[in-house]
Design a binder for these strands. Sequence first.
DNA 1: CCCACTTGAGACAAAATCGTCTCATCGCCA
DNA 2: TGGCGATGAGACGATTTTGTCTCAAGTGGG
Lengths: 183, 183
Amino acid sequence: MTLDREQVLRSAAALLTRKSTATMDEVARAAGIGRATLHRHFAGRDALVRALEELGIQEFEAALDAARLDEDTSEEGLRRLIAAVEPSAGLLSFLVNENQLFEGDEVNEGWNRADARVAAFFRRGQERGEFRIDLTPAWLTEALYGLVGTGAWAVQAGRVAAQDFPYMIVELLLGGARRSVEQ
Amino acid sequence: MTLDREQVLRSAAALLTRKSTATMDEVARAAGIGRATLHRHFAGRDALVRALEELGIQEFEAALDAARLDEDTSEEGLRRLIAAVEPSAGLLSFLVNENQLFEGDEVNEGWNRADARVAAFFRRGQERGEFRIDLTPAWLTEALYGLVGTGAWAVQAGRVAAQDFPYMIVELLLGGARRSVEQ
DNA sequence: CCCACTTGAGACAAAATCGTCTCATCGCCA
DNA sequence: TGGCGATGAGACGATTTTGTCTCAAGTGGG
C-alpha cells in the first residue's frame, strides 16, 4: 500500500487553506493516515510546508504556461491565467500568507520566478497600451494574488458562487467596479 | 503609572499584523511591558484578540462614518473610505485573516454591521448606475477587504510606496487594470 | 512623607504540540 | 503460504506557550 504523496499534499493543502494553524495530527487525520506515517514522509511541519510550497509553485508555473500569456491580447491572457489558476487558488492563498511570516530570509526562488513572469506580463500589457501605466506592475501582481486569495475565500465561505470565481476576479481586475460609459 | 490600554492594543496590532503567530511574550515586549502585566489586562490570547477585534470594528465603523458614503458620488465616497481606512489597514487585515479561522460559530456582530454597510454602499452605487451590476455587492465587499489587506502588505513589504496606498487601491477597485478608451 | 496600587521579573505547573520510538497488524508479492 | 515492507495506534520525552502566582521595586496621591 504505497502512500499517495500527492494525495496527502492535496488534502493537507485543502485543510491548511481553511485552517492555517492546523496541527500535524489534524493534517494526518484529514489525509486519512496516522500521524506517524505523516512524519515518515515529511520530516516535520517545515518540511510539509516546503513540500506544499514546491507543489504550489509547480502548479502556478504550470498555470502560467497554460495561460500562454504572450498570445492574443493581454486581456485574454489574463482570463486564461485566472481560469488556469483557479484549482490552485486555495493553496496559493495559504502559501502567500505563509510567506508573509518569513522575515524575507529564505524565500523560495520559485516565487521570484513566478512574480517576475506575472509582473512582466503586466508590464508588457502596459507597453502595448492595453493596461494603465499609472498602476505599477508590482502592485498589479500583488493585487492579482490578493484577489485570487479573496476569491477562493469568498467561494469557500459561500459568499460567491464557485462558478463565478473566474469572472468576478477577472472583471474586477480588468475593469474595476466603475460602470464605464462604453458599456 | 496607569497602563495605556490603547497603546498596548496598537503595538499588539502592529506586531500581529506582521507576525500573526507572535506569542504573548512577544506582544508584551513589543508593547514595552511585562508579560504578567499583559495578562493582568487581557485574560489570555483570546481576550487580547477580541479586544483587538473591538478596536478594529470601532475604527472601521469610524472610517465608514467619516467617509460619508451617502454624499457626493459613490466614487468620491469610496475614495474617502479608503483614505479613512488606511491607518487601520494592517489591523483589519489581521482580523480578517483571524476571522477565517473561526468556524463561523461566533463572529462578532460588528463585522456583520460593517459588512452590511459596505455592501449597501455598493448596492446603492449600482442602483445609481455608478457601479457595474454584474459584480455582486458581496463580492465587491470582499474584494475591498482583500485589496486593503494586500495593499497594507505590499506597503509593508516595500513593494508599493506608502503614499500610493490609497491611489493604487481605489484606482484598481474602481477602474481596473484595463486602459479604457475614455482616458 | 507614607501607603496603596501597579508594575516587572521570574518561578511554577498545566497544556499543547512536536518528533521519535515501539509494536502489532495488514496487504502484497515472490 | 511465508516473509517483507508499510501502516496505525499509541507511548514517551522534549519543547514551547500559556496562565498563575509571588515578591521586590517604584510611582503617585493624599
